[in-house]
Design a protein around this nucleic acid. Structure first.
Length: 175
DNA sequence: GCCAACGTTGGC
DNA sequence: GCCAACGTTGGC
């Protein structure tokens, strides 16, 4: 039984709250505190262990694409929803009926080239990306193959794993 | 700091 | 089910 082909994703984070450097330091982190149903559904239903995840800095100056991570776990309940001392506490959730889900992310690389939002917007190859939609606020998004391939090119991704992903995306996109 | 766009809540 | 009010996101 062949493994499902990977799908690509993107997460946004405000670097003041949690940056790519934080993930680089921690190596691996639960992507907790997400309180949007669409974003939850993507983590719970779409992300699989081993999928590539682009890391984007929002509310930064300038905002832009900074690195690459990888889904490192299956989806599981977000423990912060049960913790009254957490800002992400949700009194409606119970361990028997969790409302919010997360996956763990692991650090892969900080890109050699930071790609500012303005450059992403100016690139015709990225037309149609969720991130670039007017008024888009979704903090966990799926990324189409052709867009993922372009992002890896623009950022000059150089990790061995990124190169493998890139080759596979190129093959898939041409198929 | 401003403000447009968005998602959620809650009255009806 | 509608929709106004509200809080949040995030670019600029």
């Amino acid at each position: 039984m062949p493994r499902r082909p990977f799908a690509c994703f993107l997460v946004k984070s405000e670097p003041d709250a949690y940056s790519i450097d934080d993930l680089a330091r921690e190596r691996r982190a639960p992507w907790d505190g997400v309180r949007n149903y669409q974003a939850r559904n993507i983590m719970r239903d779409r992300m699989k262990k081993g999928d590539p995840v682009f890391f984007y800095h929002s509310n930064a100056s300038p905002p832009g694409l900074v690195g690459l991570a990888r889904v490192a776990s299956a989806a599981k309940p977000d423990p912060t929803q049960f913790d009254p001392s957490s800002p992400a506490y949700d009194p409606r959730a119970t361990p028997d009926a969790p409302r919010w889900w997360l996956v763990d992310l692991e650090f892969v690389e900080k890109f050699p080239r930071f790609v500012p939002l303005a450059e992403l917007r100016a690139d015709p190859a990225l037309d149609g990306m969720e991130l670039l939609r007017r008024g888009s606020r979704l903090s966990v998004q799926e990324v189409e193959d052709r867009h993922a391939l372009r992002l890896l090119e623009l950022a000059g991704a150089r990790s061995r794993w990124a190169k493998r992903i890139r080759a596979e995306l190129a093959a898939r996109t041409n198929a």
